[in-house]
Design a protein around this nucleic acid. Structure first.
Length: 859
DNA sequence: CCCAATTCTCTTTTT
DNA sequence: GAGAATTGGG
């Protein structure tokens, strides 16, 4: 079957048209499809139905398959060719940015099928996002035809879900288990902490959630952790972890991290299951290997076998521990091919470990490494800039990207007075590029470090009328109203699932307050029944007001009615409609006068149309054993599973016909993509690199890799912008230039504007409003406006600061303090009489000072 | 006992 | 500036 989400159109996007392979990585492959006569027998079934299917397939615009192995190698450089041909030992492809790794991967798969007799069912290809999986499948399909559909090309998470659904009985849950996303996990952990009477100040549920996630990524289960917990904090965490897991189990649910960890446990605990998958998957390919965490690493190892540490387990007598283990040891390892680039590892914060790639050779002693350094994407100028930045990282395998192409234009730099000026410059520049036919909106991408930075761009772009799309941020599926309605569907699909049940209990308001809920909870605990069952027995709840009990009964009746709708065989769209009506949710929104509720209704309509499109085209039925345990195609459960694992990057607009839209996203989301024109914004110390990374070498290096990823996304034009003044969570702050800017050789950058006009306001901020933020040096772009020049936020407060002059400080300034002595400014915050500075006084330590009162002097 | 207004706290990045 | 926790009003 296709990867889980291939056919699910995402809100706000045209359905991707099949066959329009986004231009990526490489010069286009052979335009001319091979001859049909050349297709050997067996590539397609020969009966008539299959013939019809094949004809329809080609009429739909698919290229004819390439079956000539020689053609698969045409136009490749030597290392690429070697990577496609290699066989016999584990293969590590170190693929620099833009070096054609997707092409190598897809052609390798095609080659396995065409020339090495591999069956599609023997292939497992793993990527990190559904979009990447979909693209890979599509491109392989273009090469080898529809037989590619029997391959598993999917994300770690969907592949594991598939395995788990099939084997769920072994693990004691049903195949219809729910998947908790991070918001669900968060909520569940909050409930757990409350049950354990933990002081949220001392033991914040949020950090517990993060810690549990880390433990799972390290494959440490709750029992193991409980045994080793030493200090009070760890003991509490162990308690919470244990209860959290129990609650998940009771709800027949798994969280994101469980999906991987449980699959690993399954393979390790049941050798016959491991044997099954090892016999099945003879070729395992992993993309973005540098982003695998320990759990994912182990998963690959268990699936493929053959790692050094994977020696068969023997008893003291030298016998295999059991017959299955003996058989397992005899299965030759799968051919493992991993592709990655340590320089692009940007997910260490969630447990990815570079170790996996750096030590691949140690784990697999007979491994071969192939290095791809030739870049087919960017100009040499861009590559030189990127190389210069990444070279600052230590402990890194040397790698030098180069291109046979042009030098290209210089990188453009711009320093704005504030973030509005930055956005305005970018808008003007895009205007110019499109007017002069240098680029279409769809060619342009804007990257930033944090999602919050997108807002200003949106404001300006709306005003000047530039078409854009923000990828990520408050995601569609994380909007409150969408989650509320999905929670109804989840309860209908899995009645014991407590987290969504409690979410909807009083949404919309129906008179079941906190107290009533707590009483139901108490009843559940007393009777040792689930929350759902306790709801059905409200009458037994102690101390429940009659009014509340009635409200609960009304709720029960409403849910029973909805359940009937489900049992009558209605599809997800129809059920969703019934929920909107019967719950009163839609009515409440319609009655509201809050203009925000109108967008909420639109979002729900969007959700309804997603459901409808799913219902009309629910995708293909998995074949044979792949279907085992999976929810029936078209069912509510299947629909929910598809929406549960959607990622930001799955929503990136495909390069459609026409002008396209400007794409805005975080640097993390940008990985794996490329655009002719790229704006890297917010190049300021404290923004990028992020404040929290400034003081730690390791984190700073990860930020630098992130910068490297950003720089190497650009094909032809690269812009680097920063702003002198920027409002961050309420208060304005001055940030110095990003250190990454200084790491790029001067000669490569053409500064269109430097910070000259933007010296931080002089001492005391004498508020001549033209001082700090003048109108932008816009050069007659059609769409510009001075009205949005922010009335300097500090002007008002600055007026009060007349009695005493506030020292204007910037990061790096040396100061002297009357009692603390000499120090260095490490951060500044706020402006006017609220201006603060964090100052490092060496042995005295670090102090945060309100400058209005602090006796400091700038040196 | 429930709800609405008010006051706080956050924000890196994500499957 | 938004979302959650908290407090006072009904």
């Amino acid at each position: 079957m296709t990867s889980l989400f291939d056919d699910l159109p995402l809100p706000g996007f045209e359905s991707p048209s099949l066959g329009s392979s986004p231009a990526h990585d490489e010069p286009p492959l052979d335009e001319e499809p091979p001859y049909e006569e050349a297709i050997p027998d067996g590539l397609f079934e020969t009966d008539l139905a299959a013939q019809d299917e094949r004809d329809a397939y080609y009429r739909n615009g698919h290229a004819r398959p390439v079956i000539d192995p020689e053609q698969l190698l045409a136009g490749m450089n030597d290392p690429q060719r070697e990577a496609v041909l290699h066989h016999g030992s584990p293969l590590l492809i170190v693929a620099g940015a833009g070096s054609g790794k997707t092409r190598v991967l897809t052609h390798r798969i095609a080659y396995l099928l065409a020339a090495r007799g591999a069956q599609p069912g023997e292939i497992l290809a793993i990527t990190f996002t559904n979009k990447a999986a979909g693209e890979m499948r599509e491109r392989v399909e273009q090469l080898v035809g529809p037989r590619a559909r029997a391959m598993w090309v999917s994300t770690f998470h969907s592949a594991c879900v598939r395995i788990l659904r099939r084997e769920s009985k072994l693990l004691g849950f049903t195949s219809s288990f729910s998947i908790y996303d991070s918001a669900d996990s968060q909520r569940l952990m909050s409930l757990v902490c409350r049950d354990l009477d933990l002081d949220p100040k001392q033991f914040p549920p949020k950090s517990f959630t993060a810690k549990v996630s880390n433990l799972k990524n390290e494959l440490i289960d709750e029992e193991t952790y409980a045994d080793r917990a030493a200090n009070p904090m760890e003991k509490k965490l162990a308690e919470a972890y244990t209860l959290y897991q129990r609650r998940l189990r009771e709800a027949n649910a798994l969280d994101f991290d469980d999906i991987i960890m449980t699959t690993v446990n399954l393979l390790q605990a049941f050798p016959d299951v491991a044997e099954h998958y090892r016999r099945r998957f003879r070729h395992i390919l992993v993309d973005e290997y540098q982003d695998t965490n320990h759990a994912q690493y182990t998963l690959v190892r268990e699936l493929s076998g053959g790692a050094l540490s994977d020696a068969p387990k023997l008893t003291a007598d030298g016998d295999f521990v059991n017959p299955t283990a003996a058989r397992l040891a005899q299965i030759s390892p799968a051919e493992l091919c991993v592709v990655g680039d340590a320089d692009q590892s940007i997910y260490a914060f969630r447990g990815a470990t570079i170790r996996n790639i750096l030590q691949f050779e140690e784990d697999y002693p007979d491994a071969t490494t192939i290095l791809l350094e030739q870049n087919y994407r960017s100009t040499q100028t861009i590559l030189t800039a990127a190389n210069a930045v990444i070279e600052r990282n230590t402990n890194r395998r040397k790698k030098n990207l180069w291109t046979a192409g042009d030098q290209g234009e210089r990188v453009v730099g711009y320093v704005a007075d504030d973030e509005h000026g930055e956005a305005q410059f970018i808008a003007d520049e895009i205007d110019r590029l499109t007017d002069e036919d240098e680029a279409r909106p769809g060619d342009v991408a804007i990257f930033y470090r944090t999602n919050a930075q997108s807002r200003v761009f949106e404001e300006v772009f709306i005003r000047v009328g530039l078409p854009y799309k923000v990828v990520g941020g408050v995601r569609f599926y994380e909007r409150k109203e969408v989650r509320d309605i999905l929670a109804y569907l989840r309860v209908l699909s899995n009645p014991e699932d407590t987290v969504p049940l409690r979410r909807i209990l009083n949404v919309p308001k129906r008179g079941i307050g906190e107290r009533a809920e707590a009483m139901v909870d108490a009843l559940a605990a007393r009777e040792r029944i689930s929350f759902a069952q306790a709801l059905q027995r409200v009458d037994e709840a102690y101390g429940m007001a009659a009014r509340s009990a009635n409200a609960v009964k009304k709720f029960n009746a409403m849910m029973a009615g909805l359940r009937q709708v489900v049992e009558s065989g209605a599809g997800p769209a129809a059920v969703l409609e019934a929920v909107l009506e019967e719950s009163g949710y839609l009515a409440e929104l319609q009655a509201s006068t809050d203009p925000q509720d109108e967008t909420r209704i639109e979002n729900l309509q969007e959700l309804a149309s997603v459901a409808l499109e799913y219902e009309q085209d629910p995708g293909e039925r998995p074949e044979g054993e792949d279907a085992e345990g999976a929810p029936p195609v078209g069912s509510l459960a299947d629909f929910l599973e598809r929406v549960a694992l959607v990622a930001d990057s799955d929503q990136i607009p495909d390069d459609e016909e026409g002008q396209g839209v400007i794409t805005m996203m975080t640097l993390h989301t940008a990985k794996g993509l490329e655009f002719p024109v790229v704006f890297l914004t917010g190049m300021e110390d404290g923004i990028f690199p992020h404040m929290r990374a400034l003081n730690q070498v390791k984190e700073l290096e990860e930020e630098r890799r992130l910068a490297y990823v950003g720089l190497t996304r650009a094909r032809q034009r690269l812009y680097l912008t920063r702003s002198v003044l920027r409002s961050a969570w309420g208060q304005p702050a001055y940030n110095p230039a990003s250190r990454f800017l200084e790491e790029i050789p001067d000669t490569l950058v053409d500064w269109k504007r430097t910070g000259a006009a933007a010296v931080p306001p002089a001492r005391g901020f004498s508020p001549s409003s033209s001082g700090g933020s003048r109108s932008y040096g816009s050069s007659g772009g059609s769409a510009r406006s001075t009205t949005t020049t922010p009335q300097p936020g500090w002007a008002k407060s600055a007026r009060k600061v007349t009695e005493r002059e506030v020292v204007a400080l910037a990061v790096g300034d040396r100061v002297s303090h009357d009692s603390f002595g000499l120090g260095t400014v490490v951060a500044t915050q706020g402006v006017g009489d609220k201006a603060q500075a964090t100052i490092d006084f060496g042995t005295t330590g670090r102090k945060q000072l309100l400058l209005r009162y602090a006796p400091v002097e700038k040196l």
